[in-house]
């Protein structure tokens, strides 16, 4: 049962946090200190962070700016943005060579006319598959049919599907069926009862907690996950264990 105040019962890693300013305006969170304070308030121990500039403008610049957000005690885990272009892949290869790549995030190229299909992404997806580096894929930046086609073509790729919304209600199950290694991030997936139904159907190992802070508040989805029919072990996996497993596939930074 609920209380007027909430703290998580299990360790928590937020799998989806954006830092820095988008070109369209300032973030409410302007520093690592502020971000850590927000995490402390909601009981989040660690967070996977990417830079806003890497999302919409330049993955290489975004990754450089991301360096300024990394804290010494490792609570903020860098996620590097990547596009299938030479500059971006070269940067990722260099970071990987130094053992600093635990996950990458797909930069939106569909809006520039490049569909998420093997002919446009083969070098990148082959590299990620071989290196065991998981790829976070924002669902609004790819066509569902392209996603299914491409994930089937790279069966060893570990994909985290980000930002499913109720407008994705018809495709989520099909995506998870068609892509057995794909994991769903839950920051804005709110159809009634669906978290429990999906966990029962696919198993808790296919889902990770993310807030997509500061686009969304950090607490509500975490509160939700703590008030489902999931058992404590399942809750622990969704809130931290699964993303730890994904990040642990590669060298640590």
């Amino acid at each position: 049962m609920s209380s007027l105040n909430f703290s998580p019962r299990v360790p928590v890693i937020d799998a989806n946090v954006c830092v820095g300013n988008h070109h369209t305006g300032p973030s409410p969170c302007q520093s690592p200190v502020q971000l850590l304070e927000e995490m402390d308030f909601h009981g989040v121990e660690r967070a996977v962070i990417y830079h806003a500039q890497g999302e919409q403008i330049s993955p290489t610049d975004g990754n450089r700016y991301l360096e300024d957000w990394l804290d010494e005690d490792g609570r903020l885990i860098p996620q590097w943005s990547v596009a299938p272009v030479e500059t971006s892949m070269g940067q990722i290869a260099e970071l990987h060579g130094r053992g600093r790549v635990r996950s990458v995030r797909l930069h939106d190229c569909q809006s520039a006319g490049l569909p998420f299909l093997p002919w446009g992404y083969d070098d990148l997806l082959t590299f990620l598959s071989d290196a065991g580096i998981p790829l976070w894929i924002p669902l609004m930046d790819v066509e569902t049919d392209h996603l299914v086609t491409t994930l089937k073509a790279y069966p060893d790729l570990h994909a985290v599907l980000v930002g499913a919304h109720y407008t994705h209600a018809l495709v989520v199950r099909g995506l998870l069926e068609a892509s057995p290694r794909a994991v769903l991030e839950l920051s804005r997936y709110e159809p009634i009862g669906e978290v429990e139904a999906l966990v029962e159907r696919f198993g808790a190992e296919r889902f990770v907690y993310g807030s997509w802070y500061p686009r969304y508040a950090m607490g509500p989805i975490l509160f939700y996950l703590h008030h489902t029919r999931m058992g404590e072990d399942e809750l622990a996996r969704v809130c931290a264990g699964n993303v730890e497993r994904l990040l642990g596939r590669t060298e640590t930074s």
Partner: peptide
């Protein structure tokens, strides 16, 4: 649940 979570958190 996430909607009431907005108030609680």
């Amino acid at each position: 649940r996430p909607q009431i979570g907005k108030i609680i958190t």
